[in-house]
Amino acid sequence: MTIDTDRPELRNGFPPQQQQPPGLTSDMDPLPDHGEDSYEGHGRLQGLRTLITGGDSGIGRAVALAYAREGADVAFTYLPEEKPDADRTTELVEAAGVTCRAIEADLRTSAACDQVVAETVEALGGLDVLVNNAGYQMAREEAVEDLTDENISRTLTTNLEALLWMCRAAVPHLGEGASIINVSSIQAFSPSTALLDYAATKAGINNLTVNLAAQLGPRGIRVNAVAPGPIWTPLQPATQSTEKLEVFGQETPLGRAGQPAEVAPAFVFLASRAEASYVSGTVLGVTGGKPVF
């Protein structure tokens, strides 16, 4: 896989733009790279049945595409307003010749999470890999006194409660060799004051990942997390100020934001029974050089 990291916009920041959450890929300038033209599969996940929450765009789409090209069947969730992105992800996954099931669901209730897992198992014939990718942030509120009840509730429920509900529903269907991959963030290690609630949930996900790995290890189920740094996804123009987008990612040692396609290989590695069979309870950073410890 080769990413064109010399694109001027990756080095010079992103043009002013704003969207309403959760944002759409088609409205982004420039469009993100999900690996459409660069990711080549090698059968590393052949026959695995995978479920990705928030798989319609951004990192979720890149993971869905990579999994499909590695031979895995893919189910993913999306919000109603993300239907255009979900349709495009479905096209990419099906073009790889595997089964795809797009599931419209708001994961902020346990009943919805239960239904998503049940529909996935029915569509794919079982479940081997759960990727808890769905997340919410709102970085336009700078101070704690500006946080609204609605945004606090949405962040905590989407990022933490739904993750636990998804795990609870999925584990009875996971056998030996299966894995759960959670999405953490550099914010868990180096939190921004403008992401107070979001960063706290990501630190919680790290704790949950290690704890769940200890609980499920005797059953042969691995649990890990990926901690991305600044990645160019629809969530950024939908939740960041234009001023922050102009310098987005430039604070990293590599001096630029990452693309979703640059994160997906970490998820492939962690899902692989051959390559990551002894990897559990770890948080793998894909941060452009920012430390994760």
Rank of each mutant, 00 (worst) to 15 (best):
V223N: 01
A86V: 11
S26M: 09
T242E: 15
S185M: 09
S38T: 15
E122Q: 13
A72Y: 02
R88I: 07
L48M: 13
N207I: 06
P32D: 13
T155K: 05
G47C: 05
E141K: 14
S190A: 14
S179P: 05
L130F: 10
L160E: 11
Y78Q: 00
H173S: 05
D56M: 04
R61A: 15
L163F: 00
F267T: 08
G285L: 02
S277G: 09
A203I: 04
P253H: 03
G97F: 10
S185T: 05
R69M: 02
G13C: 10
L284Q: 09
A68E: 02
S192M: 15
Y278M: 12
A213C: 14
P21H: 14
E145Y: 15
R222K: 15
Q187S: 09
D37P: 01
V210L: 08
A225C: 06
D128K: 00
V74G: 06
R44V: 01
E122M: 03
A139F: 14
G58Y: 12
V171M: 02
G41R: 08
A188G: 12
D6S: 15
V171I: 13
M166Q: 01
P237C: 06
L254N: 09
L10I: 11
G47R: 00
T25M: 07
C113I: 00
T201H: 07
A112H: 03
A134I: 06
E82V: 07
D87P: 01
D4W: 05
A143M: 08
V121C: 13
L127G: 11
A72K: 04
F76G: 02
I186M: 05
A86S: 04
L51N: 11
V98F: 06
A105V: 00
D56W: 03
D56V: 01
Q17S: 10
D146K: 07
A96H: 12
I181Y: 00
A123F: 13
L208P: 02
E262K: 10
E119N: 13
L208H: 04
I205S: 07
A266G: 10
E161G: 01
V286S: 06
F293W: 09
I186A: 07
G204Q: 05
C113S: 07
N159K: 06
Q236V: 15
Q46M: 06
